[in-house]
Design a protein around this nucleic acid. Structure first.
Lengths: 135, 135
DNA sequence: CTTGGAACCGTACTTAGGTACGGAGTCAAC
DNA sequence: GTTGACTCCGTACCTAAGTACGGTTCCAAG
């Protein structure tokens, strides 16, 4: 494992990771990124591992993890805590499946309303409005 | 159409509609509820039609409409604007279907990760962490 | 050695949908 | 005629995930 150089300043780093500089500062405040030391002067330097870490955060966000949950995942980052990571992922999976079920119910109600509405050409009362009124 | 009495004060009204008093005030500020007149004194009185209106809002929220969209629906409340209501509902339906597709993709990735993790009993690197690192 | 673009820092603002607070006014019962 | 619950009102606060701002300091190039 070779030690990677830390030669990026925050602006270049943020660009490399595909996020805003302010987002980097925000992640540091939230503990998602370690405060990198400032070897030479008061300017912080970042390396490739930091870029990877931010990309990890963004990937996990795309899978529906919150920053808080991602912080938990990052605490397992050495890769030896498979059980914990699987536990988190399983919970998230249940969560996602629950959301899918909810949305499917909504989809079913909405599509019925729309088709009933399409069929009710002459009526005085719109079926959609009426249905919402009936709870 | 008989005229319903407006004899509920805000506390009773909120309870009848199943929401918080503060929520009623909030909806009034947002224009979702009309400011009821204060016939006798400075205390506002509400009637059954107000209760129905709040229930309408809550039903529409459960179907994924935002308060802003619900305000649009309420503007069509007389039931004669079927086309407009159908348009809104159709947009919402597309929206819901898009969300379902996104979540299904997430579900598929997560379930693959979990099962790979379950199979990787002896490995040093957790497949979930590794996968997130590979974008 | 100056200049100007970064970096640093704390703080405030954003959206959505409310909830909470605190002081003043009101109303009905006792 | 006073108590105590309820209402009214503006304002602040909450979560989540950032974005924006404004002042100061730094650092490297010219």
């Amino acid at each position: 494992m070779k030690i990677l150089p830390r030669r990026l300043t925050v602006g270049t780093f943020a660009a490399a990771a595909g996020v805003n500089v302010e987002t980097i500062r925000f992640y540091q405040r939230k503990g998602l990124l370690p405060n990198p030391g400032r070897s030479y002067g008061t300017i912080r330097r970042y390396g490739e591992s930091d870029v990877a870490r931010v990309k990890f955060v963004k990937s996990a966000q795309r899978l529906g993890f919150s920053l808080e949950e991602i912080a938990d995942l990052l605490a397992l980052e050495d890769g030896t805590h498979c059980n914990e990571a699987r536990e988190l992922a399983t919970q998230k999976l249940d969560n996602v499946r629950g959301k899918i079920d909810d949305l499917r119910r909504i989809e079913s109600v909405l599509s019925q309303l729309v088709s009933r509405c399409r069929g009710a050409r002459g009526g005085v009362t719109c079926p959609i409005i009426a249905a919402l009124h009936a709870h």
